[in-house]
Every structure is written in structure tokens, then in C-alpha cells.
């Protein structure tokens, strides 16, 4: 089984998690920029964070044969913080040109404030300008209204629905998002959001088209193996191997390939790690025994 984990906040995870993910079949992760728990007070902290996403995390993942991609954005929660919001927006364009940045995200609504409206809209425009799809967070509270407002903003901005991945769906939001033409993300969590059984029931009810499953693992109680566990539950419930592959690999690859920066052949060829053979030259790194 091969897994493209389309939403994992690896900066909050230990290196052992990469190892466990690799053993569970994860060949690629996409790490969206998000709220790191502790509010940031200056733009520089964001830049160091973005540099980590395009630099250090890529290196950390590569050591376990995992390709690391990311999405860059001003997250909805900190869009409300006037100490950083405009300054971060000014720095986004240069990151959105970087290799391995496959989307603008996470953007969307947290509290549905006027500032969130403004920076969500402006970042959708940035995504259009840089030819990137958008990874859209939906609020934990008042989710259904948040999703409706998201759809309304996408239409207002004229953002192509097939280039939007609306995340953290639940039973109530599924019909709404399916009808919109957007892709649907589901975050499988130990306690909150969505669990494996409910997820499989949704897939049985609504099919696998445009359906994407993630662990959204972060600093909270979460589990980087949730995509693999959902795949196991799908198999137990009688889903064919192709359908499972579509949900945990094919769909996220198809969605993020819309960036024009995801080389499928490269992805299927395996890891681009520091340790790989390059022109027949293999160098064992770290201390030799």
C-alpha cells in the first residue's frame, strides 16, 4: 500500500513518526502551514517556519524515503493578528514560487471575522496568480455555516472549484461540498473531527470520487498513522484495492498535481533522499560503524 499523506504538521512530530509512517506505507507527506499553538509575535518567526517547511522538514523526511511537500499561507487564526498578518502576506509570493510548494494553505475560516474574510480572499487571489490549488481549513465551531461561507467566497473570487480542497469535513458538510465540485478532505482523529468507521461509512454512502483522507497530525492528540488505519478499515469493509489506492494515494496526487509541480514519475520512482544513488555515487552518511 502506498500513501500520500495530504495533511500532516510534521514540525510538531518527532522523527520516529516519520519512521513509523514510512513503515506504514507513506511515500509522501504534504505539510500545510498552520497555527503552531503558541501565537507568533513577529513576521520573522513565520519566515523561519516557512523555511523549515521547505528546508529542514524535507531533509528529515527524506532520511526515511518520504518525499516532503508543503503548502504555504497565513493561517486563518493568525490572520486576525495585526502584529503579523500584513507582513506575512507581503512575504508569501516568494515562497509560493518555490519548488515543492504545491498549494496555498491552510487558508479559510476559524472564527469567520472580517479579517479572515479579507486574508482568505486575498490568498485565493494569490493562489490564482501563482497557479496553485488551495487547501482550505474549515472551522471547528459552526462548521456548516463556515463551509457555506467558504463556498460563497470561492464563487465570489471566481476560484475554480476543482482546484479547492475543502478540509475537515463531517457528515453534515459532505453533500454541500460534493455539489460544489470541490475536493473533500477528512481529518481522521483519535477523538474529535472524524474517525475511521464514520469515514468508511461516508465512502460507502458517497463514493470515492474527490475524497481525500488525512491524519492532520499536529501538536494535539492525533495519530500520523490514521490514513493507514483508515485504509485497513476500508479493506475490512470490502473495498477493492483500487478504491483504497484512489483514496489514500491517487486522489491527493491528482489534486496537488494541478500545481504543475508534482512529478508523478518521480513520486513513483521512490525517495529523493540525501542517501540515494546519484550517478552511481553512493556515500554512506553519518558515522560509519
Amino acid at each position: 500500500m502506498r500513501i500520500f499523506e495530504p495533511h500532516a504538521h510534521m514540525i510538531s512530530r518527532v522523527t520516529d513518526d516519520y519512521e513509523r509512517m514510512a513503515m506504514a506505507g507513506v511515500v509522501a507527506v504534504l505539510e500545510p502551514a498552520f497555527w503552531v499553538g503558541q501565537p507568533r509575535t513577529r513576521v520573522g518567526t513565520f519566515l523561519d517556519y516557512f523555511d523549515t517547511l521547505v528546508g529542514w522538514e524535507r531533509y528529515r523526511a527524506a532520511q526515511f524515503g518520504i518525499r516532503h511537500y508543503c503548502a504555504i499561507a497565513l493561517n486563518p487564526k493568525e490572520a486576525n493578528d495585526d502584529r503579523v498578518n500584513e507582513g506575512v502576506m507581503a512575504e508569501l509570493p516568494r515562497y509560493l514560487e518555490k519548488d515543492g510548494v504545491l498549494a496555498v494553505g491552510e487558508i479559510g475560516y476559524d472564527d469567520m471575522t472580517p479579517r479572515e474574510d479579507r486574508f482568505f480572499g486575498e490568498q485565493l487571489e494569490l493562489a490564482k496568480k501563482h497557479g496553485l490549488p488551495a487547501l482550505i481549513h474549515t472551522p471547528h465551531r459552526d462548521k456548516k455555516r463556515g463551509v457555506e461561507r467558504t463556498m460563497a467566497l470561492l464563487r465570489e473570487v471566481g476560484f475554480p472549484m476543482e482546484r479547492a480542497l475543502v478540509d475537515h469535513n463531517n457528515e453534515e458538510t459532505v453533500p454541500l461540498v460534493i455539489d460544489s465540485g470541490c475536493w473533500l478532505g477528512f481529518s481522521i482523529y483519535p477523538d474529535t473531527k472524524m474517525d475511521e468507521d464514520r469515514m468508511v461509512a461516508i465512502l460507502e454512502r458517497s463514493g470515492t470520487t474527490r475524497m481525500i483522507v488525512n491524519s492532520a497530525c499536529d501538536w494535539g492528540k492525533s495519530d500520523p498513522l490514521k490514513v493507514a488505519k483508515t485504509a485497513v478499515r476500508m479493506r475490512q469493509r470490502g473495498f477493492a484495492a483500487e478504491a483504497i489506492d484512489r483514496v489514500v494515494f491517487g486522489n491527493p496526487v491528482e489534486f496537488f498535481a494541478q500545481s504543475g509541480r508534482l512529478d508523478r514519475a518521480e513520486l513513483e520512482a521512490g525517495p529523493d533522499s540525501d542517501r540515494e544513488l546519484f550517478e552511481g555515487n553512493s556515500v554512506l552518511r553519518g558515522q560509519t560503524r
Binding site: 516568494r94 514560487e97 518555490k98 519548488d99 504543475g260 509541480r261 529523493d272 546519484f278 550517478e279 555515487n281
Partner: peptide, 27 residues
């Protein structure tokens, strides 16, 4: 330059360049 530079890998690829020594490891 700041916009062209990051885009180079996806524009030209990342495989071996095929240059002679001492640049045989260049991509």
C-alpha cells in the same frame, strides 16, 4: 532573479547534468 532562481528545478529538471570532472555531480 529572485523569481527565476527558485523556479529553475521544475523548469529544467533535476537529473544529472552530464558535465565533465570536477563537475560530474552537478544536476
Amino acid at each position: 532573479l529572485a523569481e527565476l532562481f527558485p523556479a529553475a528545478s521544475r523548469r529544467v529538471g533535476r537529473g544529472p547534468l552530464g558535465a565533465a570532472s570536477p563537475r560530474e555531480y552537478w544536476r
